[in-house]
């Protein structure tokens, strides 16, 4: 837990530094997109992350692989971050750095991610309407709806946005009814 907190602090420092540089250059959107693509690649190829974080493998070999695969394909700021993490032997914090960078980006551009739980899948119109209502309700410029299905909520929706939870599910209403009696 303490180690996780320590890594989170370290990742926050790298993310903050990268965000300030890229935002000043008005390249934060491009950088975020590049970082998200890199995160997808790492998720699809777990061996790549194992290779880059293996302390036994020399840094030269890791740098050679990164150069071969990513130099010129990612923005300059992202390439600088990858080299810096490799040099400082902090490549294990990369995913946390990406997460922190996205949070900073969303905060700057009034973007929020809403985690929505429904008893059955929502159709696109419902997702769009829900996003609009949440934007109006909380004052965000953009709300991205991420839906998951859980039949146990019986009906309605449960919305988690930032640090707030709106429970409009039938299961929640039944639980509230049980508490009041």
């Amino acid at each position: 837990m303490s180690n996780h907190l320590h890594n989170s602090k370290i990742a926050n420092r790298y993310a903050k530094a990268l965000f300030e540089i890229s935002a000043a250059a008005e390249a934060d959107a491009v950088v975020l997109e590049s970082l998200q693509n890199f995160a997808k690649i790492v998720a699809d190829c777990p061996d790549l992350m194992k290779f880059l974080t293996n302390p036994v493998i020399p840094s030269d070999e890791k740098l050679a692989l990164l150069t071969e695969q990513f130099k010129g394909n990612v923005p300059e700021h992202v390439w600088g971050l990858l080299r810096l993490l490799l040099h400082n032997e902090r490549f294990g914090t990369l995913l946390a750095v990406i997460e922190q960078f996205e949070a900073l980006y969303n905060k700057r551009h009034f973007i929020a991610n809403a985690q929505v739980t429904a008893a059955s899948p929502l159709n696109p119109q419902q997702e769009e309407k829900l996003a609009q209502q949440l934007e109006n309700l909380f004052g965000y410029k953009t709300v991205r709806v991420q839906t998951q299905v859980d039949p146990e909520i019986l009906g309605g929706l449960v919305v988690k946005l930032s640090d707030q939870i709106i429970d409009g599910s039938y299961a929640g209403k039944l639980a509230a009814l049980a508490k009041t009696t």
């Binding site: 419902q126 209502q133 309605g156 929706l157």
Partner: peptide, 11 residues
């Protein structure tokens, strides 16, 4: 769907 629409409408 109706329950979802009702919830969205009540926001």
């Amino acid at each position: 769907h109706r329950s979802v629409d009702a919830f969205i409408g009540s926001l």
